[in-house]
Amino acid sequence: MNIFEILGPVMVGPSSSHTAGAVRIGYMARKILGETPVKAQIQLHGSFAATGSGHGTDRALLAGLLGMEPDDSRIPYSRQVAHESGLAFSFENVNLRDAHPNTAVLTVWGKEGNQVKVQASSLGGGRIMVNQIDGIRVDFTGEKPTLIVQNEDKPGVLADICYARYSQDVNIATLQLYRNQKGGYAFTIAETDTDISEDVIQALPHMQGILKVIRIASEEEK
């Protein structure tokens, strides 16, 4: 851990895992949706379900969905902000199998009709891990600039993705591939050392076999 993971983050209390991490989960779900959410079904698992209301986990998740970051002083009032900005929401407790105790599943619908289901857990200190997107297992934190590409699971697509980034001189730190079934859909997730330029994001969706491109900027850039 670097020293700014020891001191910090600046955050709205009371809990870095149940509040700050929850805001980041909501925020990440919004990013993955890629547009303004209008409806959200939120499921809470484990300790999120058991102690979430006292920790403001519900309000924190909503705040993130509304685009707030962990230090936003409007977090306690996010239910109201959601009403005002036309975000319908519901909460329920669930019991997931093999999930981290601080886990939430957010099914989110956007203004333009997109829909995504994100499962993520809060690891402590405000850090999170995205575990699933639309039922496909993934594993990334969003701490580094991250590119998430939903593509058809067929030969050649990965090479195209890598080439697009290589030509932009972006150094890939980690690259992971996840798929639901052979020949179905896959997620290619690349964490990079430097931020990925708009050009790459613009170019990628036009390539064959690529369905959706999501870019998550690094902490610094935000």
Binding site: I6, L7, G8, P9, V10, M11, V12, G13, P14, S15, S16, T19, A20, G56, R59, D71, S73, I75, P76, G125, G126
Partner: peptide, 20 residues
């Protein structure tokens, strides 16, 4: 302030934010 959902600095955690 932390318990009341105000803005604090985790140091090292939110629960112990008052010490430093």
């Amino acid at each position: 302030s932390n318990a009341c959902m105000r803005r604090i600095v985790a140091a090292p955690t939110a629960g112990s934010c008052g010490v430093l």
